[in-house]
């Protein structure tokens, strides 16, 4: 393991409440430069809420998020401008824009030509447009979509739409890339390719934070994994540590862990009553793991 000292992202004591519901409860979280960090947890554990707190879509009820030492303002476009780019759990490309245009939109924060320069079309405007396009084409080549630059985003196959979303996020030259379930709905080959892609992004010097359900993907990929259960950070550490942790297994399997009073008996009664039905459920759970 390389020694990582400079933190890129620091979330301190982040709490997010929706009315009476606490979706995220005082989470401390750090991503260091050059790291790939995974964030896992069962459905409804608050992963995406936490993500949205990081990117400014939600204003955390308590706590602060800082990027390279400066506290981030809770406005998505300012977060992106600061250097954090993200993708979405459900692909949110600009469906009726071409592949190239999607990436060019990602360049928005790194260019500053306004309406007047667009109307007057001075040499500065042309230069900036050309530079943006060159950078966008570089990124499209990087993810392997250069040949489809003029296709509409909605006409791309699913896997390529995921890749394009990553390219669009990279276009803002981020220091940290947040990927929200990048392999959702992908087949094993595509997942492998995404893994390679994330490594390549890390090698470009961009730290990566991944939310994912695919455990194999996460444990192959990440230097560090944090587990979020019911809004709280349960455990954080290397893949081996997390994989070995009983509480993580319990949280994923929904089985009572040690010290949970009465749960064992309740489970026994239920098992006795439901018989074969209960057996089939446990077996599916086993498969899920």
């Amino acid at each position: 393991m390389t020694i990582m000292t400079t933190p890129v992202l620091e979330a301190r004591d982040v709490t997010m409440r929706f009315g009476g519901l606490t979706a995220v409860r005082s989470v401390d979280f750090t991503v260091n430069a050059g790291e790939i960090v995974g964030l896992i947890g069962p459905n409804g554990a608050g992963k995406t809420t936490f993500f949205n707190c990081l990117t400014g879509l939600y204003i955390p009820t308590e706590g602060t998020v800082s990027y390279k030492g400066t506290v981030l303002p809770p406005k998505p476009h300012l977060v992106t401008q600061a250097g954090i780019a993200r993708t979405f759990q459900n692909i949110r490309l600009f469906a009726n824009m071409t592949v190239l245009e999607n990436v060019l939109v990602g360049r928005h924060t790194r260019t500053k030509e306004g309406l007047w320069s667009a109307l007057l079309r001075g040499p500065g405007f042309k230069k900036a447009e050309k530079a943006s396009e060159e950078r966008a084409m570089e990124l499209l080549e990087f993810i392997g979509l250069a040949a489809k630059r003029d296709h509409l985003a909605r006409n791309l196959p699913y896997g390529e739409q995921r890749k394009l979303e990553i390219a669009r996020a990279l276009a803002s030259d981020p220091g940290l890339l947040l990927l929200d379930e990048p392999t959702a709905g992908m087949n094993p080959q595509e997942t492998r390719a995404t893994e390679e892609l994330v490594f390549a992004i890390r090698d470009m010097g961009v730290a990566v934070l991944v939310i994912e359900h695919d455990m194999r993907f996460i444990f192959n990929l990440c230097d560090r994994v944090a587990v979020l259960v019911q809004g709280e950070k349960l455990v954080e550490g290397t893949s081996e540590v997390v994989q070995a942790d009983e509480r993580v297994i319990a949280a994923y399997l929904g089985e009572p862990f040690e010290g949970d009073p009465g749960a064992a008996e309740a489970a026994e009664v239920a098992a006795a009553e439901a018989g074969a039905e209960a057996q089939s459920t446990t077996s599916t759970k086993g498969e899920a793991q």
């Binding site: 990117t55 879509l57 406005k75 998505p76 476009h77 992106t80 401008q81 780019a85 993200r86 979405f88 949110r92 490309l93 600009f94 469906a95 009726n96 824009m97 245009e101 060019l104 939109v105 990602g106 928005h108 924060t109 669009r168 996020a169 803002s172």
Partner: peptide, 18 residues
């Protein structure tokens, strides 16, 4: 482009720094 991006998906557009 940013107008069109806003039209297509405002949340994604703001997440792209617009």
């Amino acid at each position: 482009r940013s107008w069109i991006a806003i039209r297509e998906d405002e949340t994604a557009a703001t997440a792209m720094g617009i």
